[in-house]
Computed example of a mutant assay.
Amino acid sequence: MFDLLLSHIQNKVDLPEEQSNQIQTFFTYKKLRKKQYLLQEGEICKCLSFVSKGLLKSYTSDEKGNEHINMFAFEGWWTSDFNSFINQEKAVLNIDAVEETEVLMITLDDYERLMLEIPVMDRYFRILYQNSLVTKDYRLMVSNSFTAEEKYMQFALRNPEIIKKVPHNLIASYLGLAPETVSRIRKKWSLNT
């Protein structure tokens, strides 16, 4: 259950063997059914979660009940409503399982303690946050500058696993496009490949 997390950490920082076992003590395991919430808007986000199996989506809902997907979290990805987690304020995001999912969760107190007791984890999380900022900047640029087809093509090229695994209506929500637009682009794209 911890193999993927430890591998993910080792890919970013040099983690001594003895600290691998210690890290596991900071986390709790949770299994989610398809469509089960990990977090609902208005709750306090109590944990930062690492996806060890499955797929989550984080999103907001508008007054009509339409979902606006903020991100997908696949195996090996972290997710939370980070503002809610760090500041212990009410969450603005919902996070639920697109499919049966398993997560490893760490509370804010344990997160802080982890970085104090195993200093290399501070560097690990800094690397993650830097990568996240780069990704969010790129997503904002694509959202503001690209046509619908360019948005889909860039997304598909950067995330081929998502294209194969996620229903097109969820991809449309993530890209800020109508499902019909994504269907049309997918059809056109499949004819050209």
Results as ranks from 00 to 15, higher is better:
Lys164Tyr: 11
Cys45Gly: 08
Tyr111Arg: 10
Leu104Pro: 04
Ser80Met: 01
Lys188Phe: 07
Ser190Asp: 03
Leu38Gln: 13
Thr101Gly: 04
Val182Lys: 08
Glu149Cys: 11
Asn131Thr: 06
Ser61Cys: 11
Ile171Phe: 12
Thr28Ala: 11
Lys12Gln: 15
Tyr59Leu: 05
Asn192Glu: 15
Val51Phe: 06
Gly65Cys: 04
Val92Lys: 14
Leu104Thr: 05
Leu55Pro: 04
Phe27Glu: 02
Leu32Trp: 01
Ser173Asn: 13
Tyr37Gly: 01
Asn83Phe: 06
Thr28Ser: 13
Val120Gln: 04
Gln36Pro: 06
Cys45His: 02
Met71Tyr: 02
Pro119Arg: 02
Gln19His: 05
Lys64Thr: 00
Ile185Thr: 04
Asn21His: 06
Leu4Arg: 08
His8Trp: 00
Lys188Asp: 09
His68Trp: 11
Lys12His: 15
Asn21Trp: 06
Ala148Arg: 00
Ile9Val: 13
Lys151Cys: 01
Asn94Glu: 03
Ala156Lys: 15
Asn159Ala: 12
Glu161Cys: 07
Pro16Ser: 00
Lys187Met: 09
Ala97Cys: 07
Ala156Asn: 12
Glu41Met: 08
Asn70Val: 10
Glu17Lys: 00
Ile69Met: 01
Phe26Tyr: 15
Asp137Trp: 04
Thr181Ser: 15
Gln88Tyr: 05
Lys188Gln: 08
Val103Leu: 14
Lys64Ala: 00
Arg139Ala: 03
Glu99Ser: 07
Phe125His: 03
Trp189Met: 09
Asn159Trp: 06
Leu15Thr: 12
Val134Gln: 09
Glu41Cys: 14
Asp137Ser: 11
Tyr111Ala: 07
Phe146His: 14
Thr135Lys: 15
Gly76Asn: 03
Gln22Asp: 02
Leu38Phe: 15
Phe2Cys: 07
Gly42His: 08
Asn87Gly: 03
Leu191Ser: 12
Ile118Thr: 14
Leu157Gly: 14
Leu38Thr: 07
Gln36Phe: 04
Gly54Met: 08
Ser58Gln: 08
Phe27Arg: 03
Ala73Gly: 14
Ser61Gln: 06
Val120Ile: 15
Ile9His: 00
Ser7Asp: 11
Lys90Val: 05
Glu75Gly: 09
Gln10Thr: 11
